[in-house]
Amino acid sequence: MKNSLAKLTYLFIITLSLLGYLSSYLALILGFIFVLIFNNPYKAYNAKAIHLLLKIAVVGLGFGMFITETLQTTKDGFGLTVFTIILTLSVGIICTKLLKIDLKLGHLITSGTAICGGSAIAAIAPTIKAKPKTISMALVIVFLLNSIALFVFPALGHYFNLTQEQFGLWCAVAIHDTSSVVGATINYGDEALRIATTVKLSRTLWIIPLAIVSLFAFKNSNKKIKFPLFILAFIVAIILNSYHLIPENISNNIVIIAKRLLITTLFLVGTSISIKDIKQTGSKPLILGVLLWICISVFSLIYILN
């Protein structure tokens, strides 16, 4: 009886996420709550489903990106983008070793902080063959810091008297996920929102070289390196959308579906989390996430102010 109820509840939550009724945070939390109450009835398929849906969702998000527009709008922020990505990745590598954290977990947390939160983790995870539990921990840390950013950044922006342009650029660089970037800037002003969204979108393009570097860095010496086809598909999606080779309404719907698939994936990821896993992971991954977040926030703010 309990197993049947678990299956019905599981499928009900999946349906809600696919229909767009759940936010990313809620989906992840529901997944976590689900495994506290029930045993996952589809645990055997969970890992494969997570990796497949992550790849499909990342490719779908490419249909919402425009190469020319993002490159043109972010010319002034190019230097800051390169500087903060290199800085964050470097500090992340050092801190991961000093804190003696699992290399794949440290890399996912670092990648999410350096580029674009959950989307970066989604893209990088398959290339390094990260386990669902590892992905879960990285996402939990990134989403926790995202939630804090929604309240902290606007207050700091007003405290430092940042202009809309400065605040938009700062949020795009220092806040992990696009949704949180929009949430933090939407009440600061229209110009802040526009700049933040555009710069964040262009920053997402750095997923591609980072994913390729990650593939080589975490390769199995006993196997040949294969270029991940989903990255190639991601590039093709951006090109198709940039040159309007498919109708706009179709590309918009693809992006909507991709976001819903990503939310569905987050529920599956949540079902991979357990209290036991969190205790085993310890506080070190959270410390890494906080250190990286403070690093990128402080240095980018100093860069912008000067």
Rank of each mutant, 00 (worst) to 15 (best):
S147I: 07
I29R: 09
T265C: 07
L80T: 00
S272Y: 09
V255G: 06
G77M: 11
I121Q: 04
V199A: 08
L144E: 02
A211N: 03
G60K: 06
I86Y: 06
R194C: 04
D190Y: 05
R194S: 14
K223D: 11
I101V: 07
V199R: 03
T204V: 14
T178W: 02
V173D: 00
I207H: 04
V173L: 13
F218R: 03
K133D: 08
F299D: 10
L150N: 02
I225T: 06
L80H: 00
Y303E: 01
G20S: 13
L54N: 11
Y45G: 10
K226T: 15
Y188W: 04
A57G: 06
K276S: 03
A27D: 01
S23L: 12
F299E: 06
I37W: 11
V182L: 13
I239L: 12
L22R: 04
I50M: 13
A149F: 02
A47K: 15
L305H: 00
T70C: 09
V173P: 01
A122K: 07
H244T: 06
I235W: 01
V58Q: 00
T185M: 07
F153A: 10
I37F: 08
G168L: 06
A6Y: 11
T70D: 12
V152R: 02
I287H: 08
V58C: 05
S4D: 12
V35G: 01
G79T: 02
K224D: 08
K43F: 11
I246Q: 02
F143C: 04
H107I: 09
H107D: 00
I302P: 01
K279H: 10
K133E: 15
Y159E: 09
A6R: 12
K43M: 07
K223E: 14
D76P: 02
I296Y: 11
K259C: 04
I33F: 15
Y42T: 06
I294F: 15
A120C: 09
L162H: 09
I67P: 03
T113K: 13
I304P: 07
N161G: 03
L8A: 11
I231G: 10
G168C: 04
I225L: 06
S17G: 01
I148W: 00
L19H: 01
L22H: 06
I93L: 13
L229R: 09
L144W: 05
I231D: 13
N46L: 15
R203P: 05
I254G: 09
